[in-house]
Amino acid sequence: MNAVEFILAGMLAAATPFLLAALGELVAERAGVLNLGVEGLMALGAALAFIVVYHGGGHLLAFVAGGLGAALLALIFAFVTLGLQANQVAAGLAIGIFGQGLSALFGKTYESLTVKGLPKLALPGLADLPVVGGLFVQDIVVWLSLLATLLIWAGFAFSKLGLVLRAVGENPKAAHSIGYPVILIRVAAVLFGGVMAGFAGAYASTVYTPLWADGMIAGRGWIAIALVVFGTWLTGRIFLGACLFGAVSLAGLAAQAGGVELPSQLLASLPYLVTILVLGIISSNRRLLKLNGVASLGEPYKP
């Protein structure tokens, strides 16, 4: 297997934790809420899901546990920022630290243990194609994530719900005055973001690298937040960005396997460096950000 085949085959699975968390954050930000606690939500989801799988509960229950646990934490964030109008940056950081702490607390006795992941399902016919065949051999969660991406894209493009969500983020006052419950919609969006971050963590700890280690999320929650900016709040671009990061995290492995002599620390920093670089490139195009950005992002709203 050459490097290109290796990256193509693994890219989607590596992208999935980024993608799920970023899609959740996209929905919350579209409604006007900036949740910086994604890293902690993912960590908590990962720890809970791992514990469930380790004790034989199976992957379905694990994803439910991870999603619910992260949603509960997101509910605290919603209460503080939307119920009490606290600063969203401070609250997000607090939730992030709290969630990472909880994950370490719950996961303490499971440190370095492993579980069995999920089998890969091949799309008949396509999986046998040369070079790109690997793209079509993925586990069920990857397939479902692609479906979720499609649904969210369609939801924003065609549904009334998507339109209302955007209205609440663009101009909460106007949305309120035509009768939409702004706070409730925002709470729902934050909870959705929590569930997705929990799923992202669950995938990371029970499918992608089925093991538990404190700090295993390793900045992926933060990169997911950056992905929403990269994608300029558009579902399709966020998907492409997630694929890019999936590929980047594999490129290091591919380079090492190919005998390229690079310090492992440089390879480990690669996703962070790419984030900084892309963030600079995209953000310097102020028109692009203004065109697609969310007008009331991060601002408290009191009806």
Binding site: L36, G219, W222, L273, I276, L279, I281, L289
Partner: peptide, 22 residues
Amino acid sequence: LNANEILVSLMLSLVAAQVLNY
């Protein structure tokens, strides 16, 4: 570059930890 300082400064912390390791 108009980039969000929260994300950039946090990413740089993760890079700094790797520089230290190196």
